[in-house]
Design a protein around this nucleic acid. Sequence first.
DNA 1: ATAAACCCTGAAGTGAATATAGGGTCAATT
DNA 2: AATTGACCCTATATTCACTTCAGGGTTTAT
Lengths: 133, 133
Amino acid sequence: MKIGDIALETGFSIETIRFYEKQRLVKNVGRNANNYRDYGEEQIAQLVFIKQCRNIGLGLEEVKSLQSHLENPQSDCGEVNRLIGSALKKVREQLKLLHETEQQLKHLNSLCDHSGASHECGIMNELRTTSNF
Amino acid sequence: MKIGDIALETGFSIETIRFYEKQRLVKNVGRNANNYRDYGEEQIAQLVFIKQCRNIGLGLEEVKSLQSHLENPQSDCGEVNRLIGSALKKVREQLKLLHETEQQLKHLNSLCDHSGASHECGIMNELRTTSNF
DNA sequence: ATAAACCCTGAAGTGAATATAGGGTCAATT
DNA sequence: AATTGACCCTATATTCACTTCAGGGTTTAT
């Protein structure tokens, strides 16, 4: 299986897959005669695992950490719990901020919907006055 | 007013304020005899304006664009509208994704809350099976 | 006099990719 | 046989918004 195929299959870009290999997140990649990378089921599983981790907001080093728990089934899973717990906490903080941002933007968005001189634009006037310009 | 003072006043770090000056987001910064930067009300307004823009998710180039609308009151505010509109759209997309992420994480978080071998960890087992490892 | 707490510059590092330059390989068509 | 287009390769640079670092100078308090 060539890199373009696995890219299609996993939804990662070719460049990202090569990048993950350099970062040792994708392992045991073979090469065929012409030096093209050769992928199999193992690499698909690795990439799907990475995708899941990235989708829940984990960083690449955290992904590596979870990979090592996969590879060492006897390891204590306390770290896994901490990792997921703190990811959940971070996501909830982000959600709170993003909700506030949405309210701000909705408010601004309501202040102008026409074209005209900036000094008569409700959005610009709001931004100007709240920053004491 | 020295950089440390305005940093405290505006909530930006000293380094960020110097960085914004290099990026021409903060302007007309004076210098006193010892070559220390010297700030006044104008720079406070600039930084508060930047802070508002960053808080609603705008990038530095977008901040510059809004600044130029402040500086050119006769300019057409159509761009301002588009900018805010697309920011709102992006934020809503992010919110949708983040809500999904939260659900995922809540689910995972419910699968294990003890210490033990990783191969008996509900979180790890979920991640393993969904990636076909 | 000295130490702590400021300030300065310029360059490099961060994360997670994405893009670019410059080249090799392969299958199909002309 | 030659060429075209779609792939693949490496290595390096760029992105964004900062942050950190190295190596200094200045001011304030003891």
